[in-house]
């Protein structure tokens, strides 16, 4: 009796502790968002989106860094998507299962966990110096493409693996080649999962500052980049720059910038969630 009483007590205690643990995370997040909203929401107006950076906090805006972020995201997508999907197709459909493919697999999974600053240093040597790209958009996009490539490969492989083998069998049995089967059955079947992975990967790229600082993104850009060979800044770097200023006006600007960045990543995640749920419904 006493024993079971004690066990029930432990049970209760743990369930309470579990609730507390869960809410600590949520509470801190809500607090953070609350503070940011309080600090920054009043600063967001149309001029904030259309203004160039400035010495005066009330005149400064995120126009150039927003456009820079847009450039970086689109270029990163263009560079990483074909490579990532092709690599995943090779690994899933063509590579012979064996030691070599195991080593590749482990390496790719590990690459997804490498700190982003390491990619920045890699990019600095390869793209900025050896390829002579310096600090332009292309160098940044190449670096971020490297960063998100493992994420895209892993997500695409999972999506490809989720396509039922029976569908592939049916295609082959009708005389389809491997490429036809991949193009007409596997990729359409996996598209939802691939989309989800790509969007999540890009939403990570949007928030990166460290690797871009290393490959020469600027903190102060009074112009909008017109080509991939131009210099640029991105939102996280703009925010970082503002936070490091002493004037109070700039930390308000930073809070407003953080709100915009949060809104962008949240929107991207929502799109990913939407695709995932639609994809799951379809496959049921």
């Amino acid at each position: 009796m006493t024993n079971s009483g004690r066990n029930r007590l432990i049970d209760r205690a743990f369930s309470v502790w579990g609730v507390v643990s869960t809410f600590i995370g949520i509470a801190l997040l809500l607090m953070f968002i609350g503070i940011i909203l309080y600090d920054g929401l009043g600063r967001i107006n149309w001029a904030f989106f259309t203004s160039l950076p400035s010495r005066f906090p009330e005149k400064a805006g995120i126009y150039t860094s927003m456009v820079g972020t847009l450039w970086i995201v689109v270029l990163t997508l263009i560079l990483s998507l074909p490579l990532g999907i092709s690599a995943a197709i090779y690994l899933e459909e063509y590579a012979k299962k064996g030691r070599f493919s195991n080593i590749l697999e482990i390496n790719i999974s590990n690459l997804a966990g490498v700190p982003s600053i390491i990619y920045g240093l890699l990019g600095l040597q390869i793209f900025s110096r050896t390829m002579g790209l310096g600090g332009n958009l292309l160098a940044g996009a190449f670096t971020l493409a490297l960063l998100v490539l493992p994420i895209i490969i892993v997500a695409t492989r999972e999506a490809i693996r989720a396509v039922p083998g029976s569908i592939k069998d049916a295609s082959y049995a009708l005389g389809a080649t491997k490429w036809q089967t991949i193009w007409l059955q596997v990729l359409p079947g996996a598209s939802g999962g691939i989309m989800t992975g790509v969007i999540l990967a890009l939403s990570r790229a949007v928030g990166e500052a460290a690797p871009l600082i290393v490959v020469g993104a600027l903190a102060y850009v009074p112009f909008v980049p017109a080509s991939p060979m131009d210099q640029y800044s991105v939102l996280p770097i703009q925010i970082f720059n503002w936070i490091s200023r002493p004037q109070a006006g700039f930390s308000t600007n930073a809070a407003a910038g953080i709100l915009i960045l949060l809104a962008i990543t949240l929107a991207m995640n929502l799109v990913a969630v939407y695709y995932r749920s639609r994809y799951q419904r379809k496959s049921n």
Partner: peptide, 26 residues
């Protein structure tokens, strides 16, 4: 040499496209 499998495995396409698939890939 055609093949029919254990579990029905139509493609996630229309009825028409299912039957036409083998011709279209040719």
């Amino acid at each position: 040499v055609g093949m029919v499998f254990q579990k029905p495995n139509p493609f996630p396409k229309s009825i028409f496209e299912n039957v036409a698939y083998g011709l279209k890939i040719q």
